[in-house]
């Protein structure tokens, strides 16, 4: 019966693709909000197969999997291959909380030479490469929506937001794109 239950991503068929700017919905991924104190970090890192970053505004990646530092005891773990992240952490006895948010968030991939300018229409952080280098990630604001911004390349960002805000975020990017 599972095959028949259609999965509908919030931004299915949306986005735009220009020469200087592309905004496209990311493929579905599994996501975990991982909350853990420092003591559990090592075990969780081992279980997930990557080092949970300990430095603010940084990420670590391995293959299709990445962990984004969101707070001193909070990470957003994304597996673009769709691996079961909850199961991966289930065996770690140290105190932590692993909560599946695969469907809570959705993501847009923003790329092209104008990507940073479009994001700067709504994001108050300094997005210069110096202040926000490749690999940096941060929870922040884009207009009136909270996002998690992850710079995946000099001209490439992944923008994660809660699904119901994705329409607003995309509309604001479209509006901003008219100005860059």
């Amino acid at each position: 019966m599972g095959e028949e239950t259609r999965r509908i991503a919030p931004l299915e068929g949306r986005g735009f693709d220009g020469e200087e700017l592309r905004v496209l919905p990311a493929e579905p991924a599994t996501r975990l909000v991982l909350r853990a104190s420092a003591e559990a970090c090592e075990d969780l890192s081992a279980a997930l197969g990557l080092d949970l970053p300990r430095t603010p505004k940084t990420t670590s990646s391995k293959g299709a999997r990445a962990a984004l530092w969101l707070g001193p005891d909070e990470w957003l773990v994304i597996d673009q291959a769709g691996a079961n992240l909850v199961a991966a952490c289930a065996g770690v006895p140290a105190f932590h909380a692993a909560v599946d948010v695969s469907h809570r968030n959705t993501a847009m991939l923003v790329s092209g030479p104008r990507a940073a300018d479009v994001l700067s229409a709504g994001c108050p952080q300094d997005l210069s490469l110096h202040a926000f280098p490749v690999g940096a990630a941060s929870r922040t604001m884009f207009g009136k929506a909270e996002i998690v911004l992850w710079r995946t390349g000099e001209d490439a960002f992944r923008v994660e937001c809660w699904r119901s805000f994705s329409d607003y975020v995309l509309l604001l990017m479209e509006a901003a794109a008219r100005d860059v």
């Binding site: 603010p56 707070g71 001193p72 929870r139 604001m141 909270e146």
Partner: peptide, 9 residues
């Protein structure tokens, strides 16, 4: 203060 839209602390 709360860094509510940042680290949430």
């Amino acid at each position: 203060w709360r860094h509510i839209h940042g680290c949430a602390r």
